[in-house]
Lab assay of single mutants.
Amino acid sequence: VSFKITLTSDPRLPYKVLSVPESTPFTAVLKFAAEEFKVPAATSAIITNDGIGINPAQTAGNVFLKHGSELRII
């Protein structure tokens, strides 16, 4: 599955597209996205474009099915 993750704390709204296997734990996606944007993973969260928080204790495939591919990291 592929996710387009936007960094909301930067006024330029940079984004990265990450492709991972469906079975990947979403905690790993969060950690990798945080490292890519050089923000601390421990204090970061991934939310939907509607501002709904995503529980990272599920697979990337589940997140994709529930929330789609466009996400934000805060």
Rank of each mutant, 00 (worst) to 15 (best):
K16S: 11
L71W: 00
G61L: 10
P56W: 06
F26S: 07
Q58W: 13
I52M: 11
A57I: 10
A34L: 10
F26P: 02
A42L: 04
S23H: 11
P56K: 11
L30W: 15
A34F: 14
V17I: 05
D10G: 06
I74G: 14
V63P: 00
K16G: 03
A28K: 12
A42Q: 05
A42N: 08
I46S: 02
D50P: 02
A45K: 15
Q58G: 06
V20S: 02
A28F: 11
V20N: 01
A41C: 05
P40V: 03
V20G: 01
G61V: 09
D10E: 10
F26L: 12
I5N: 01
A28N: 15
V39S: 06
A41G: 03
E36Q: 06
S9T: 03
N55S: 10
I52H: 06
D50Y: 04
N49G: 08
A28D: 14
G53Q: 15
E36C: 07
N62E: 13
P21L: 13
E70Q: 09
Q58N: 12
A34S: 10
T59Q: 09
G51F: 03
A41S: 07
T48S: 14
A60F: 00
V63G: 02
L13G: 09
T59G: 03
V63C: 09
N62D: 10
I46E: 02
V20W: 13
A60Q: 00
I46R: 01
G68M: 01
F32A: 15
L30E: 15
R72Q: 15
D50S: 10
I54A: 05
T43M: 13
E35H: 13
S69C: 06
D10N: 09
T6F: 04
H67D: 03
E70D: 13
A33Q: 00
F26R: 01
S19R: 07
N55G: 05
L65I: 11
T59E: 10
I46C: 06
L65N: 13
P21F: 10
V1T: 04
V39T: 12
N55Y: 10
L71P: 01
P40N: 09
I54D: 02
A34H: 08
F37M: 03
K38W: 03
K31M: 09
L30H: 15
P14Q: 10
A60R: 00
V29C: 03
N62F: 05
P11G: 08
K31L: 09
N55D: 15
